[in-house]
Amino acid sequence: MSDYVPYEKTHRLRQLLFVTTIVDAEQGDAIIQINNDNEAAICLQMRGKGTAPKDIALLNGTSKKDVIFSILRADKWGSYKAQLENRFAVSKAAKGIAYATPLDSVAGVSIYKMLSNTRQFEKPMKAVERKKGMKKK
């Protein structure tokens, strides 16, 4: 057998979140900017429609929605949430909701690296380095 060591044994894995943010139409670009600030690897913007009755939708201005799906590292959720709360407080038109769903698995190391936005090679964990050192001796 080769010396293959699974990635999770050598590198610390971080939880990934699938984040859905729903805001009024034309507000999506601001949300994408917040996602970019928090190192989201992927942002997918879609046009949706609210299900409120027409009269209520007219009172609120529009029933058209921007739905943004993104993938964030869990350690970035706190700052993303704080920035979103500030954004939603700007005006009535900027209000929206967001929620995070934890991801269970991804299809391979390269996909994990891409989704977690690991731009530079992460150094292996110290315990594994020590173990390898012992083997050499």
Binding site: K81, K95, A98, Y99, T101
Partner: peptide, 10 residues
């Protein structure tokens, strides 16, 4: 349904 770990704006 899928579980949600946290929400904002509710």
């Amino acid at each position: 349904s899928v579980p949600v770990s946290d929400t904002v704006g509710i």
